[in-house]
Amino acid sequence: MSALLEVKNLSVEIPTRRHLLVPVDDVSFDIAPGEILGVVGESGAGKSLTGAAVIGLLEPPGRIGGGEIRLEGKRIDNLKYRELRRIRGAAIGMIFQDPLTSLNPLYTIGRQLSETLRTHQPLSETAAKARAIELLDEVGIPAASERIGQYPHQFSGGMRQRVVIALALANNPKLIIADEPTTALDVSVQAQIINLLKRLAADNGAAIMLISHDMGVIAETCDRVAVMYAGRIVEIGAVRNVVQAPNHPYTQGLMASIPRLGKDDARLAHIKGSMPRPTDIPQGCAFHPRCPKRFEPCDQKRPELMKGDSSQAACWLLQREADQ
């Protein structure tokens, strides 16, 4: 089956006065139709920028520095603004982190929905309104036909994120980019929202790129996961494999640092040091200064993704195992 989204050697650049920052560097992945790919990493790892690059919403001066993005085989990274605008909200939907600030406070929910519908579909005002009520119903907002005339401040956080989802899915996109969709929500609401997103995506046959720093959310939701560190994918593979048998020392550290009930360790494991800023990414493997398993090539040459036993990881250890 051909991929829905193919990202090849994507890099994002931000020119500043002194440096050319490359917060996303040579990232490649693809998503199959209906698949859910998780993208996990610390803040600043380049997850959100990757998502923004795919939908063409990098904020200037940020820009795509190289590589290709294809949606259903068609390149979308070099489209003109007008063509790209037609894809946004139609073929690709995006959900942002904070439902409290994602909706325009001065317009009713109904107006924002029908505006989104009518931008991409030739609908009459009444037809758009009917569809908007249907959408609100689908995302589980009770009494949708009454609440359609209400303003965002009249909804709670979880309800607002449902509205956001309705907006993002209004035109049945094939790909949904969800950037930390549950981070700003109560834990009790998180699961509901994730399940809703999953169900709607499955109903529409849509693929999801789920960006999160929460390994728990990723593990529960996704088919595959890409782990990002300092602008690069360090490991990518099926969720179960990456969670249970991570190949990259960074992923291993990440997994070890998740607190578990019933584990009687007095202290929580953590990775020493912190992720480098984009201004001073070290030579070789970006993780080597913090890596407990580093050896000769690590501070010299940058490892590319290599096939491991259960996933692909960018680590010289895999090379060494293969050589032996």
Binding site: I55, L57, R85, R86, I87, R88, G89, A90, G93, M94, F96, S102, L103, N104, E115, T116, T119, H120, V164, L167, A168, A170
Partner: peptide
Amino acid sequence: KFARARGL
């Protein structure tokens, strides 16, 4: 940002 992402 969200309005842009919806292709308005």
